[in-house]
Nucleic acid binder design. Structure first.
Lengths: 339, 339
DNA sequence: TTGAAAGCGCTAACAC
DNA sequence: GTGTTAGCGCTTTCAA
């Protein structure tokens, strides 16, 4: 335990800097915020005093007085998802220049938790909110609508945004993947995904997927769900289960790349001919896939771009319409047969 | 765009609730905070008014008046690391019951950025700070020391904490892994890791590792570094590079599990006999490994536990000493030969 | 059980 | 270029 300087009994205030430098509080404030004209001499005195005292301004007081908060609330379901860190990257990239900073809240896909996270965040009067998904409790929606700040709902555009939405159509993503699979000649198709009632985006993908199958006169020959645990391992296990239960399945559609990767490793280990005996596809386009022995077919979720566009709207750099749709491209990879 | 209710010109205040309910601001405040005795009747009136108005308290004002902020700053180098999300899980678990909430800041392993993130966070006067690592700029250290709040530096305990430290000894982790490798009879050992001057923990592991090798009269026969990109892919590439440059290498020590996994997949694809022809080990003990065709030897970084313990110190639930050392166990997996 | 007054530490708006 | 004054929306304290 090393305490280099004596700890102040109370946190330092502008007044302390003012007294130490012999400059009025107001001018100290101006110097510290680079606002208005201050002579080089006074500026130096102030900076010197602030530095030696180790003064850190109190943003609570500043925000209350100026009615301005440079925080942007970001509400996401999970951090361990591999997709949200990338969204954060996009958000940070854009916000970095603007003086705004993101504050992250995690909901774990629980609507109640989402509601309270939103409530807490709004109570800090942020300059904007970025919230994953379009489905929220009525109370959460109402709070967001009332807040009087820009709200951007991200990831999904299949629905009605409170204010703005930036994302892809998961319904369409599912449909397009199904169409590609059908076009490649696969007929006995199974779905493997998460059992999360509140993962609305995964649900929409599956809906779109099944609709496209139906249009081609097909139905899923099997489906398998999981929750929790190592996604890679679950992918192996679920794949094993489907293959033994439905041996003549010829395509496995996974709700995310991680379980898809597990499935791919399993199929290869079993000596199955991918993509001829069996085809595979995931969703998200995670970087991870680049390192697999064979590249898994997938569809990019446009994560960084979504983060960027959302932040631009909050920062007022984009006067977008209510909905901004991004169009992911299907990456065929090596796990869908080419006809 | 759906606006269910008319947007207020200004955010609602206690006064609005007071007027709507015919109860004084003070009593409204009491009701909303569950403080002091308020008659059931008034309480109901107030709650009713607050609910219908959609009032969200202003924590800025509340915090200024009460000099109490329920925020805990968490400063970490990266989100995409797979390790920090788990630390966050541990932190949230403990903080959830306490009325404190974590606020995350990301530094990308940049000291300057760390300094400014810490400065920004402190300016919100949090109740405590959890900061990854023991190495900070002098200014950052000084700010933390001055803040007058509990500071917990996490992940590492090889060094001098500002206040408290919770973590493992990375020096020891490297040493123990080396000892296990040597004990298994490997002799021509290579290191593969990240090229990040500011990843002090990886650096300490390598130091401990090399010291143990030296003690056994060994030195690294090769080393390979990378930065950026898909870790899994980099693991493959680096492994290929080392194997072709130093064909008689018999052990590959990776600085993290993700590149280790890439290396493992590569070795298996090449038909190399793991662990007899060549042994492999990583670091972190990530869940991901459970899904690999063979289990990679690794060492747990105690991530969740570190988060938990750190949060307990902040929450005042633990009157720990300055340093709390956690002891990770070496997981031999299937990639170190058993003698 | 309820209310009134006095700030919390800072900044907007205006003097000088 | 610099200083003064009046709050920002709450909570603390004290009185009723």
């Amino acid at each position: 335990m090393t305490k280099s300087s004596p700890e102040p009994r109370h946190a330092l205030t502008l007044r302390d800097v003012s007294e130490a430098s012999g400059v009025s509080e107001m001018t100290v404030s101006r110097v510290l915020r680079n606002r208005g004209d201050v002579s080089a001499a006074t500026r130096e005195k102030v900076l010197e005093a602030a530095r030696t005292l180790g003064y850190v301004p109190n943003k609570i007081a500043g925000a209350l007085a100026s009615q301005r908060v440079t925080l942007v609330g970001v509400v996401i379901p999970s951090l361990s998802n591999m997709v949200f860190p990338e969204v954060m990257t996009g958000i940070s990239e854009v916000l970095d220049g603007t003086g705004l900073q993101p504050v992250v809240g995690v909901t774990n896909y629980l609507p109640d938790r989402e509601e309270s996270v939103i409530y807490e965040m709004l109570s800090w009067r942020p300059s904007g909110m970025i919230v994953a998904g379009l489905e929220h409790s009525p109370a959460a929606r109402a709070m967001l609508a009332q807040a009087g700040i820009p709200i951007v709902e991200i990831m999904d555009i299949d629905g009605d945004p409170v204010d703005h939405a930036v994302g892809i159509s998961h319904h369409r993503a599912g449909r397009e993947m199904a169409e590609a699979i059908i076009a490649a000649g696969y007929k006995r198709i199974a779905f493997l995904g998460t059992q999360m009632p509140n993962d609305f985006r995964a649900k929409k993908r599956l809906e779109g997927f099944e609709q496209a199958l139906a249009k081609a006169g097909l139905t899923l020959v099997d489906r398998e769900f999981y929750s929790g645990g190592s996604a890679l391992l679950k992918g192996r296990e679920m794949t094993a289960a489907v293959l033994s239960r439905t041996p003549d399945v010829d395509f496995l559609y996974y709700s995310n790349d991680m379980i898809g990767a597990g499935g791919l490793l399993y199929c290869l280990a079993q000596g199955l001919d991918v993509p001829n005996r069996i085809g595979l596809a995931g969703f998200n386009g995670v970087e991870l896939l680049d390192g697999l022995p064979r590249k898994l077919a997938t569809m990019d979720a446009c994560r960084t771009e979504i983060g960027r566009k959302a932040a631009e709207i909050i920062a007022g750099k984009a006067s977008q319409g209510a909905k901004v749709e991004l169009f992911p491209t299907l990456q065929t990879g090596d796990t869908i047969r080419v006809r």
